[in-house]
Design a protein around this nucleic acid. Structure first.
Lengths: 195, 195
DNA sequence: CGAAGGTGGGTGAGTGCTCACTCACCCTGT
DNA sequence: ACAGGGTGAGTGAGCACTCACCCACCTTCG
């Protein structure tokens, strides 16, 4: 129908949108086709099945957190530790806010979840990766002497990212804490434990 | 069929079991009836609809975290702070491990999620409540002088419970960290920030 | 006492609907 | 001419839910 975008992109967009609004199990082929401005049959010219379409949405539309973490790990000592932790927490909070509702839907379809877990394993990614990435960054700062030698970097990483993730599901949209001040408070509190 | 339990209980058990194993959207009336050892029609003698059945499973079968927190708040100063934080973290980790997969399923059915949110609001409960409860406990300890006067108790509560919640979804069952040592590491790390 | 009748928990056999998916065919650019 | 992206009209399967009926057990009362 409208728009210059190729149909494949419009289909992914429509599926993504529906997963967020009405939920995975009401994101039917009919609704996706309507949202994308094409027929149901057209979906099957681009994707082998509805399951494959969802896998594509998950792998092509969800943002990544890893790049920020690995860039920081690469040069520990840049910026202050508090600035860096705050930025990580802010990015993580926004990341989980976006991806959590979709990822959570997978628990309703364990078969789809298994396929997705497998796809993630093959791509060398997964939900535990940010924790490991932050752990690695903290160990780099530890080696640089900016984090106490006896600090438990894995526990610290679990605390910070856990709080950011939980923010995405513990609150109604109406009372969701603002990402920036929330991140700053977490970072400041955690910092007291690290040095 | 078998068992002395009344049918209503057997139906709730079967629905609960299926939600955990095959996921909400494959937990069909037919499968639930089979699991409970009765006919599909019997389900409707006990519950008005499948949606109401799931609401009942969620409100009657999910464990509660609040009692532990409020009992600790009632008498701050009992036990050491580290022991108490460790116990809270351990209980929280087990709580989220049990309830997370089911609660997450709701994101696939936003209509069901809305009904559940509403039911929780009426019961005065919700996912943000443990955070508030732990915050209250920490403030009580602060008043008793066992937590630094300038500590951010809300941020600390978010960190500890967030890490416990994230443990439930960031890891495959195969590599899920043991609750007890995980809790101890979190508590020890957070403690360094609190005093 | 014993039949009449109400009641709560149960069933087998549907019913209508929605779903993912397919098929025969079409249009347009190269 | 034909390949690739598109379509309207299905199709069978599976779904939540209903219906007419059953039966064991209790009251109630002639």
């Amino acid at each position: 129908m409208q728009s210059g975008k190729p149909a494949r992109e419009r289909i992914l967009d429509a599926a993504h949108e529906l997963m967020l609004t009405v939920g995975l199990s009401r994101a039917t082929t009919k609704e996706i086709a309507k949202g994308a401005g094409c027929s149901e049959a057209a979906l099957y010219k681009h994707f082998a099945s509805k399951e494959e379409l969802f896998i594509r949405v998950l792998t092509e539309r969800l943002p990544r957190l890893a790049p920020l973490l690995s860039s920081l790990t690469a040069e520990p000592g840049r910026g202050t530790l508090e600035e860096n932790l705050t930025e990580i927490a802010r990015e993580a909070a926004l990341f989980y806010e976006q991806s959590f509702p979709i990822a959570a839907s997978l628990y309703a379809e364990t078969q789809l979840k298994r396929r997705h877990d497998e796809a993630m394993r093959e791509m060398g990614t997964g939900p535990h990766l940010p924790i490991e990435g932050l752990d690695a960054y903290l160990r780099a700062e530890q080696a640089a002497g900016r984090v106490r030698a006896d600090a438990d970097t894995f526990a610290a990483a679990s605390l910070l990212l856990g709080a950011c993730a939980q923010r995405a599901f513990a609150y109604d949209a109406a009372v969701l804490p603002e990402a920036e001040p929330f991140a700053a408070r977490l970072a400041r509190t955690l910092l007291a434990a690290l040095r």
